[in-house]
Design a protein around this nucleic acid. Structure first.
Lengths: 311, 311
DNA sequence: TGCGTCCATAACCTGGCGGCATGGATGTCG
DNA sequence: CGACATCCATGCCGCCAGGTTATGGACGCA
């Protein structure tokens, strides 16, 4: 008997939620559609998977048996899919590079140019990640390498090579009273509302709220953004202000938004990251080497930072 | 990204066959349908899975990566599905019993009656298996126990408890010269064409051709049948004769077919079989106990049983 | 008694799958 | 050298499965 993984996801969602309506909501389908699908799954298996009551849907014995297997099944499919995609990338000589919005700055171009020289016939394919995925697809295996800013959650499970640092500035609505100041002390912003990343992003979110550098003062959250566009919009509309790397002033310049230098916050570190499984991959190694090489000039200008040792 | 297991089966078939047309044939779909599906799979994965040539379809690197995972994925789904079905059987208090056509004879009713007495509230659900599945669904985990005739392929991986033996007779077209004889010696049938099971059924097929008891003389195959209906039809139409347990004379009596006692072939043994995984299952154990109890009277008497009225 | 919360049902629409017929490319053979 | 065979791709069409909205029925709760 055949199933669609979609159907399995539906089933898993209902099993977890114990409630059709909420599960339907989570799956972005209507509740009747979900009802039909679950009933059909039951019909096809010839087994009752849930007992219905006004309290919701609770698993029966066969339902539990299935629910136990489904997650690993979905995971297995996902792995298979990714393995194929990776093989396809290799075959097409494409290095997939994840980048957090405003990940690296101008250096990115140098890196890619250097890589193109080193690996003739290869091509770098960049994909911008939303802030809700702080490893830019690396943790999920969707990319071969990523340009990220430290610290980020999941960092310890990956190889990380710091490249250079960059001062953190502040992005303000143009109408903000401080927007005309040449230099702002972070202390002056402690009571401002901030545009933050989603709470799930943990350390990363805290870092860009400079939670450690506000002397214990709580942060006011004015808005939550997951992508640069939302972020810029939120700031321009006055929902809050936000820290940003200096280069954002060039890459995310926009009417209604002003970037200003900041004192009293540590600079931001850009790093290249890759999966430990790719340690031996010559292409990934070459790419990392290019990153270190391209970063060298900037790094010297920017104070200490670990010595570049191209491996 | 979602897939249907059907799509994975399609992919696996093409990967194995290396040829769309043949794969389509094997999958019972048209070749254009398969073409479309494979192309769609490629589109969804964003990877080329096959290189097309007039020689056929051969896997690319990503194709190989996928082909490596797909079989285990399908197997995992099948396992999950069966586990759920088994749990459903338990929950509904159903013991699923596989039976090879003409598996057990009149004893079946006694067994089921005994089980019904021992396990109140439980119910036996019988499913007839085609000869192409010599374990009657036991090997695949579709049933909890099976009534089979020894020997059958796959026997060693299962628990088998012999119940009783029954003489083997011969089924002849009514018009056959020997059809009026009271007793036939197997030797007289050596040159007759036989209606046999599919070649894949190995030992089982050989046993019912009595390949070991024809003194090295080769078997002539007149027809191949997979189900009792085909089998009866083939015999009645004169394509060949066949050995059959004595009880077939009662259970598969049909105009145009005559059953006659045979000398010179060993009797057939009926056994109950179950999966080793169910050794500790109290319900299966009870069922086996009922089988042994119901078989006891016949086992001692062995020969006669109810009078056969071969017409 | 009216309201909110569940799940089920009804009616309708649409996209995708499968089937048939056919086309295009490329060997093969009389 | 043309006829043929073998593969895969394409065009067109009918049908069903899955989705949506609107609504119903059961039940607990204030």
């Amino acid at each position: 008997m055949d199933v669609d993984t979609r159907l399995l996801r539906y089933f898993a969602a209902v099993a977890e939620e114990g409630n059709l309506t909420r599960a339907a909501d989570r799956l972005f389908v209507s509740q009747p559609a979900l009802t039909k699908q679950i009933r059909q799954l039951e019909a096809r298996l010839g087994a009752t998977l849930f007992t219905r009551s006004r309290a919701g849907m609770s698993l029966t014995a066969p339902g539990r048996a299935l629910a136990e297997r489904v997650p690993e099944l979905l995971a297995a499919w996902d792995r298979a899919r990714r393995e194929a995609a990776n093989a396809a990338g290799r075959a097409a000589r494409v290095l997939k590079l994840g980048a957090m919005a405003s990940g690296a700055n101008e250096a990115t171009q140098d890196v890619i140019a250097a890589f193109a020289r080193l690996r003739r016939g290869w091509r770098v394919e960049m994909r911008q990640a939303a802030w809700s995925d702080p490893t830019a697809g690396l943790a999920a295996g969707d990319v071969d390498a990523a340009l990220l800013r430290l610290p980020f959650p999941g960092q310890d499970a990956l190889r990380v090579e710091p490249l250079f640092t960059e001062p953190r500035w502040v992005a303000l609505p143009a109408a903000h009273p401080l927007a005309t100041r040449e230099l702002i002390a972070f202390r002056e912003l402690w009571d401002e509302p901030f545009v933050a990343a989603r709470p799930e992003t943990g350390r990363w979110r805290d870092y860009w709220l400079a939670a450690d550098e506000r002397d214990g003062r709580p942060v006011r959250i004015g808005a939550i953004a997951d992508r640069p566009d939302d972020w810029l919009g939120a700031i321009a509309n006055g929902y809050g202000i936000a820290l940003a790397p200096e280069s954002a002033a060039r890459f995310y310049a926009r009417p209604g938004i002003v970037y200003r230098p900041l004192s009293g916050v540590a600079p931001s570190t850009v790093a290249v990251a890759w999966a430990p499984a790719d340690d031996a991959d010559p292409v990934v190694r070459d790419f990392v080497r290019c990153c270190l090489a391209a970063a060298a000039p900037q790094r010297s200008g920017d104070g200490p930072g670990p010595r570049p040792d191209a491996r």
